[in-house]
Nucleic acid binder design. Structure first.
Length: 600
RNA sequence: GGCCCCGUAGUGUAGCGGUCUAACACGCCACCCUGUCACGGUGGAGAGCGUCGGUUCGAAUCCGAUCGGGGUCGCCA
């Protein structure tokens, strides 16, 4: 090794030791005959003291050293002179008195500051990602990511799981997300698909008798991106045989609580992760990924407004639509502008708006006076309705009630978004809290309006509730499944299910999904076959590593925990991928490109 | 595919119809400085405002298109 120690690992125990350090110049302070260099390596930063007269290189050469140059320094670790200690630095009690310096490599002036924690344009960061990675934030995030995967591997290994790799080149399947395709040279006209997840492989491993499998697996989905979605992402893929849903959930709960306890103890997490059913979740929070760091639950107001004079509500009830509301504590202090923003949210989801009822801070909650209510509905709202409303919403003086009346899914979208927005505005969120929960009993099927058919909500290997199987043919929307999500702070961090392991049930599901029997046999023959050779009951879960690490790193964008992420258009700025390829490759693959589409 | 936001020296921002041949901070270059740690001091260089077109006597500033980045809805079993 060109160095004997790491900068950040040195402390007072090394005083008077001769060491050789190597790294990058993070900052220099040139005082003429005396120069300080903050030397950075992957472990941290230490101050180097350069005295012209004590060095092997000329004063001229010392003054030429610049940020990000790579230097190797030999010298003695000394305690700092009294009064010159730096409490802000981990190594601030000591310093390296340099005797010999080797300049290993010079550096151009970096395109953005490496030694400051400021926001740089994303495009620039991606173009020079290797420099961005030198910044302490990225270093810490990727270290945390390593710690997470390391912990996972140890934890699952200790529970006798074994890690098995599965193929990247797979057969394309019609269901689910759009596949990334890879053309085959040996089979002209045929394509592999990159895995959306190792779903089928892990089930085949269960049939293969490995009762406990895991893999930290790369997955690919060719869909539009978001700050929490990359075209390639990593999931912790877990599958077990002879398990019930509860076994999987308990395993994940133990893994996550122990991991967070060890790696990021500053977070407070529930000892037990609460479980909530999908239906209850939608009723209370309007979403299947609720943020439970704060209250504000959705209430149904139908019974209060059954005989109302408020025409719009009456109409909604007659049309079998819903009237639902949330109560924002102290929300009467919100500005008109904010209320307008709420209405814009409602319009975004295709509704006309939200009705607001603002309660004065002086109002007597047990005997409310209409004079202390501010609302556009006021003249049609009866005293009785007001009282019932306050009681139902458990409102207090100064609160704001927001009512959305529309189809159930529309009110859910609106109220769930307003709920989170309001909690942020009213400072109801404790950002040191990780409110994990499980959402269970997802519907087996959902109707896809675009394709005019039923699709699998989780995936087509999900086990339906035994007692709901008879509904598959006639009332598929009512079939519950053994599919579950793990949710944290309003984000889905993983989902899983107990799987179908019997061929006949699988065929019944495929039929429901209107997948032609012949095609089904072509696409899934291997699964059907496998199920017919003593497939054990099995199930699993797949937490997303990127999202999990982002949450633990307090990052809102998963790109901040991925070394080389892609842009929103799935491009890699650094390397230029995707790119056009030489005609000879296309010829070999027997592919031709529509020239109209080809631009440079 | 729809909607929205952003694009000014190397970096981060200001300027939002004439006072802008564009300002500030950091960085950069030169010189000075032996205890600094966001070192300090003196001096200096560096952009014509993503691109194209339009409106106007006059455009970083207004309008349109386009490119790039980001957000969001759809989509993401």
């Amino acid at each position: 090794m060109l160095k004997t120690h790491m900068c950040g690992n040195l402390d007072s125990s090394s005083i008077n030791k001769d060491v050789t350090l190597a790294g990058w110049v993070s900052r220099r302070r040139d005082h003429g005959g005396l120069t300080f260099i903050d030397l950075r390596d992957s472990s941290g930063i230490i101050q180097i003291v350069l005295r012209n007269e004590e060095l092997n290189i000329s004063a001229d050469n010392i003054s030429r050293i610049r940020n990000e140059w790579v230097i190797i320094v030999h010298g003695t670790i000394m305690i700092r002179q009294k009064g010159t200690e730096n409490k802000k630095m981990k190594t601030g009690l000591i310093e390296l008195i340099a005797k010999e310096i080797t300049i290993s490599n010079k550096s151009n002036t970096p395109p953005f500051p490496i030694n400051e924690d400021i926001d740089i344009d994303e495009l620039n960061r991606m173009k020079y990602r290797y420099l961005d990675l030198r910044r302490s934030k990225m270093l810490n995030n990727l270290k945390l990511r390593h710690n997470v995967t390391h912990f996972i591997r140890n934890f699952l290994s200790s529970k006798e799981f074994i890690e098995i790799e599965t193929p990247i080149l797979n057969v394309a399947t019609p269901e689910g997300a759009r596949d990334y395709l890879v053309p085959s040279r040996v089979h002209p006209g045929k394509f592999y698909a990159l895995p959306q997840s190792p779903q089928q492989w892990k089930q085949l491993l269960m049939v293969g008798g490995f009762e406990k499998y895991f893999q930290i697996a790369r997955c690919f989905r060719d869909e539009d991106l978001r700050s929490d979605r990359q075209p390639e992402f990593t999931q912790l893929d877990i599958e077990m045989s002879f398990v019930e849903q509860e076994d999987i959930l308990m395993l994940i709960e133990e893994l996550f609580t122990k991991m967070i306890d060890k790696l990021t103890p500053r977070f407070s997490i529930p000892k037990k992760f609460p479980s909530i059913t999908y239906n209850e979740c939608i009723e209370k929070y309007g979403t299947d990924k609720p943020d439970l760091r704060f209250g504000i639950e959705i209430h149904d107001l139908k019974k209060i407004f059954l005989n109302t004079e408020i025409i719009i509500f009456k109409k909604m009830i007659d049309d079998k639509k819903r009237i639902r509301a949330i109560n924002i504590p102290n929300g009467s202090t919100l500005s008109k502008k904010q209320i307008k923003k709420y209405n814009e949210i409602a319009i975004k989801y295709g509704s006309k708006g939200v009705a607001s009822i603002s309660l004065d801070h002086q109002i007597d909650i047990n005997n409310p006076s209409m004079d202390q209510v501010d609302s556009l509905l006021k003249q049609f709202l009866s005293q009785n309705e007001l009282e019932n409303l306050i009681q139902e919403m458990k409102s207090e003086a100064g609160d704001l009630i927001l009512i959305s009346a529309d189809e159930v899914s529309v009110t859910s979208n609106i109220l769930s978004e307003i709920r989170v927005l309001s909690a942020e505005l009213m400072n109801l969120i404790d950002y040191d809290k990780l409110s994990f929960c499980f959402v269970t009993e997802f519907p087996m099927f959902e109707f896809n309006k675009l394709e005019d058919r039923w699709t699998a909500m989780h995936h087509l290997f999900t086990m339906p509730f035994e007692e709901d199987i008879h509904l598959i043919d006639n009332d598929p929307g009512q079939v519950r499944s053994h599919a579950y999500d793990i949710v944290c702070n309003g984000q889905e961090v993983g989902s899983g299910s107990i799987r179908i392991h019997q061929a006949d049930l699988f065929l019944k599901v495929l039929k429901r999904l209107d997948i032609d029997e012949k095609i089904a046999y072509e696409q899934f023959e291997h699964m059907i076959q496998a199920f017919s050779y003593g497939a054990p009951p099995h199930g699993g879960i797949a937490p997303g590593i990127d999202r999990l690490v982002a949450i633990l790193a307090k990052e809102s964008d998963i790109r901040e925990v991925i070394a080389f992420p892609k842009t929103k258009t799935a491009a890699d700025i650094l390397t230029g991928a995707p790119s056009f390829v030489d005609q000879k490759y296309l010829d070999e693959l027997q592919l031709s490109i529509n020239e109209d589409e080809r631009q440079s």
